[in-house]
Each structure stands twice: as C-alpha cells, then as structure tokens.
Amino acid sequence: MTLLTIDHLTKRFGGLIAVDDVSFEIEQGEVLGLIGPNGAGKTTLFNSVAGTYIPEEGQVIFNGAAITGLAAHDVCQLGLVRTFQIVKPFAALNVLDNVKVGAYLRNNNSQITESKARDIVDFVGLGDLAHQPAKNLTTAGRKRLELARALATEPKLMLLDEVMAGLTPTESQQIVTVIEQIKEEYHLTLLVIEHVMQAIMSLSDRIAVLHHGQLIAIDTPQAIAADKAVIEAYLGKEFQFADN
C-alpha cells in the first residue's frame, strides 16, 4: 500500500526553483533514503510536505488524503511527523517534559501521557537523563530527543532530517540502531535525509537522489551506488559496500 505520494511537487523561492517537479511514492513500512548534495532541495522538500512551506505546484497525498498546503500541526495530527536538521529542543524543559509535549497530541490525560512519554524516553536511551533540562544534553542526546518527541505523536510516517549530522561514527551507529528499533517496534514508515552514506545505504530499502531540485534517480541502494548520474552528481566515486 502506498502511504505517501508526492506528485509533481514544485517549490519556488522567487526565481529559484528549490524543488522541481518531483514525484515519487513511499510504500507502507518502507525506509526511503533521500540523498543529494547540499542545496539539492532535500530539506525544502521536507518542508513542503510537512506544512512549513506551501508548494506552488503539485500534490502531496498522505494515507489517502490530500495534505498539500496544510499547516504543520494538522499534518502532524494526521500522522506525519518530521524532525529538524538543526535540532529544536524545548531547552528549559526537561527531557521527559519535551516528550510529553509530543505525547499530548493523542490524549489529554496527564497520567497516560506521562507513562507513554516515560516509555519512549527509555526506548531511545535517554532514561537516565529524563529529568535533565534539554539544554544540558549533548548533540547526540538532542538528536535522540528529536526522535523521541516525534515518536510520541504516534506517527505513521516519520521524516528524519539529518539525524546523524554532527555525530561521531560511534554515535551515528547508535542512532542507526535506535532508528532500526523504532521501525521494528512501532511499524513506522520512514523518509530519511542523510549525508552519512554508510548509514543511509544500510538503513534504506530504496534511495531517492535529488540534484538541483530534481529527482535524478530512485532505486535500491545497490543500484544507486552504481548509478552513473548519481556518482557524477553526488557520490564522486562508486560506493563500496562493506563485506559482511
């Protein structure tokens, strides 16, 4: 079943076409990677899907309903949540309260919300820091918090915007593990922007490549790694899969 359809989506800023007639679909349960050079329009595509920007042309259909141009909070209500590349923790609130803000979307009861948020905080590995103010977290901690808050809104589809940017290889590996667990445990569909090739290649079922706002390829990781146009535009050389 198709969960998200992006249909001829175009987003312009004045004369600049940031997202240029992009179409693809995401299947239920799939992990779709989204890669491309800086400025390719990845985050703009996210923003146009999740309600931050209103696209000029095209349609976004999520779970059978057109969500083109809906406000961010309405999109989230329908089960599509996004994280931010530059993390946006509620700095003065502690970790648990940050996650409670997400969890309140699905019910008004404080006790239920609290226990649900508690479970998710433990799940992403922030259990020991639950009562620390979010501003005290390390970058890796903040990335986990972004995941936890998004997860608490009980989404069907999560858009992850460079969750691994700025992390050490070890921390990245740990986040990949968390994302895989999220996918298993919560049966989520994921659309993931990432520059860490190792991570995106192993995580994704398929990968879409944006270049100058256009979709230049969408295929399995193996096929993408060997794709001439992708190598030209982004990878530079053929990506070598580590031997297992």
Binding site: H73, C76, K88, F90, A91, A92, L93, V101, G102, T153
Partner: peptide
Amino acid sequence: YRNKLGYYLLAIREDEDAAAALGVDT
C-alpha cells in the same frame, strides 16, 4: 501548568516551529 495546555504554552515559548511540528496549533 500541570496539564496539556501548560505544556503546549511552554513548548510555544521555547520553540514555536518545533511545537507546530509536534501537532500544536500555536
């Protein structure tokens, strides 16, 4: 302060975009 309304208000104070992304009608 101790209920949904308060959490939403604090979230708006701390970061409006993040609050909206979590479903808060700011």
